[in-house]
Write a protein that binds this DNA or RNA. Sequence first.
DNA 1: GAACTGTAAACTGTCGACAGTTAACAACTT
DNA 2: AAGTTGTTAACTGTCGACAGTTTACAGTTC
Lengths: 212, 212
Amino acid sequence: MSVDLPVHVSLAGQTVSVLRELVLTGEIAAGERVNEVGVSQRLGISRGPLREAIRHLASEGLLVLTPNRGARVPQLTPEEVRALFELRTALECAAAALAAQRRTEEDLVKMRGAVIRARTGLTTGEFPYRLDLAFHQALMDAARSPLIAEQVRLVQQRVILLRASIEVAFSHEQASIDDHEELITAIDARAGDRAAEIMSRHLDRVRDQLLT
Amino acid sequence: MSVDLPVHVSLAGQTVSVLRELVLTGEIAAGERVNEVGVSQRLGISRGPLREAIRHLASEGLLVLTPNRGARVPQLTPEEVRALFELRTALECAAAALAAQRRTEEDLVKMRGAVIRARTGLTTGEFPYRLDLAFHQALMDAARSPLIAEQVRLVQQRVILLRASIEVAFSHEQASIDDHEELITAIDARAGDRAAEIMSRHLDRVRDQLLT
DNA sequence: GAACTGTAAACTGTCGACAGTTAACAACTT
DNA sequence: AAGTTGTTAACTGTCGACAGTTTACAGTTC
């Protein structure tokens, strides 16, 4: 009988979570440098675990390292944003196609639920991108491809980093939800190619929103 | 006038290269554990930089970490190999389609050169996968998508890790090169969809070779 | 002889200090 | 006043040592 309780998480592991939140919420702004001694003292730990956390986030693309000059939060150029979305499109289109092959009825229920919550959330003024992510997450679950899912998660994180400094218009959110419904229809019909196409158009639109 | 000379590379950075080679060549076998004190002494460095290198390779999937139990070289199950190739297919099919859009005449020359070297290399008995990689590299260059290229590099590394303990038959190499020539034809014709299809079939075959 | 318990060795996680590099500022020169 | 050089402060890179955890083994019990 295994009661998985006081899982001792290393300081480095905890620090990864803390730092990630600081970066994603914009508390550490884009372009800002991460001072090792300063942050380690502020967190009450030594530099070792903090360094590990910094390196970890750098490997996720949430920080960029410069030799002898430490880490800073990246501010992407439009060209880099386009490259990021080429990667995202490759991954999520493939996932959409796989989801069309592998989805169960339960997967469809979850995806529809995410869309409904997004529609109601639009009016109640919840964080829109959280609701958007919930749908994409449900779709990834349906695709049943753990490695693609992990890479999608990493890319989406970097997109959130972009959004930290951008306001997205209401009409755009509306259009995204419409895309999601189209996607569900295609995945329901097991039309993989069409699902991939819709996803591609969807992500092109999202990218252009972020580039304005 | 910039003369890029004694670029001081950190110990951690050098160690990443050294360790990566040890893992990819199979000098550290699959399943084997990486002892921090042992390896650091063997390399003549302290545990700090080695730890950073280990974490780095872990983020690339070349090592797996277990809390309080260090790092070992992963030995993938057939299921994990399939998942890895789903990711690879997503990335390389997208790259093939992009290459069909963006390739220049120079790109085509380089890809053809890679195929020719592969054919001659087959008889002279060079490392086959090196020649295979050269083609895929040329294709990635033609796609001009730096982030996809980086991810492809990481996935291919993990495939090399698999190959470290597998012998590939001659006929399989032959079939791969044929696929490559088909790919060049499609990319030459700017037929993105067909290029993606060929790549998909190609990778399915490679995967099945590795799973035997 | 098999299963359990307690102890010791080996290893990972963390810390504080020192060394080397970079960047900013002040003083000096033209 | 602008440019250059020298100095200093801040920060990253590296190291060795200590603390806590895991694992292996010996001893004990049934």
